[in-house]
């Protein structure tokens, strides 16, 4: 027998053995997977943004078919897509409150001062690492647009006063801006929550107004005007209790001497302020 034949026979034999093994394994270890998962996965946006809290659209599809999530919990897909998935699965689309990113700072360059000039790498992360970035308020927005760059949905654009303007129609509450902000100024909040405290400074009293005209002085007027337990100023800044946000009324914001707490019926800052295409 020639060497060539030996080689062919050995390789062929090995191939045959593994082929049989794979064929058996395929039969024995076969797991039934709901074919609807693939179909639902195709109906999802496939942005894999994670806004639903699950690791990607495939995982969401599995959970939707299993019935542990409702189609509406995918806040990124539109009304039509949700109905399509609900109709296909024969379930109720469900109610999911749309969350959007809200900025807990109202101190643009028109109302908040700078104590030093920052020169260096033009990102918020880098500026925050060097002496806090030069802004008078140590808690405030630095305005160097890390959130704008990280947003996959083109929903954030900087305004002329250096604050990020969130397009609430485009925002999917994926949370990338929440992670990107070195000052942790973004929070994902229900779009219909109404009340919002646009400040995070912890200084108690009017001293803070030297740095920013729209800062929260923790005067407590909103606490008196709002339902009991909704707002707390014990930490030096008004903090909303989102478990009781259903009790929020517009007049809680009316007596605020600085305008740190606001009543929103839509976008936080006017979309017209955004400098489009500045990314």
């Amino acid at each position: 027998m020639s060497d060539t034949l030996v080689a062919v026979l050995i390789l062929g034999g090995v191939g045959l053995v593994f082929g049989v093994f794979i064929a058996i394994a395929n039969k024995r270890l076969w797991v039934w997977e709901d074919p609807r998962i693939d179909i639902v996965a195709q109906m999802l946006p496939n942005a894999n943004c994670g806004a639903c809290g699950l690791p990607g659209c495939r995982a969401f599809a599995e959970q939707a078919v299993a019935g542990t999530v409702t189609p509406a919990q995918c806040t990124v897909s539109g009304e039509a897509a949700r109905e399509q998935i609900a109709g296909f699965l024969g379930v109720d689309a469900g109610e999911a409150v749309k969350n959007v990113a809200r900025l807990l700072c109202g101190g643009g360059s028109d109302v908040a001062g700078y104590q030093a000039e920052y020169r260096g790498l033009s990102t918020c992360a880098a500026a925050a690492a060097v002496a806090g970035g030069g802004k008078g308020c140590a808690w405030g927005c630095l305005g160097l647009a890390d959130c704008e760059h990280v947003c996959d949905f083109d929903a954030i654009h900087m305004s002329e006063t250096g604050l990020p303007v969130v397009d609430i129609d485009k925002c999917t509450a994926c949370g990338d801006c929440v992670e990107a902000c070195p000052k942790s100024l973004f929070e994902l909040r229900p779009v219909n929550a109404g009340l919002l405290v646009q400040c995070k400074n912890l200084i108690n009293g009017d001293d803070v107004l030297e740095q920013c005209k729209v800062a929260c002085t923790a005067c407590g007027k909103c606490v008196q005007d709002a339902a009991a337990g909704l707002i707390n100023v014990a930490t030096g800044v008004a903090v909303l209790n989102y478990d009781k946000i259903g009790l929020a009324e517009p007049h809680a914001a009316e007596r605020c001497p600085t305008g740190a707490i606001v009543w929103l019926s839509g976008a936080q800052f006017s979309p017209a302020l955004a400098i489009s295409g500045s990314a």
Binding site: G120, L121, T123, A125, A126, A128, A129, V130, P182
Partner: peptide, 8 residues
């Protein structure tokens, strides 16, 4: 500065 920001 890049590394400091990355560490943070």
């Amino acid at each position: 500065q890049l590394f400091q920001a990355s560490k943070l």
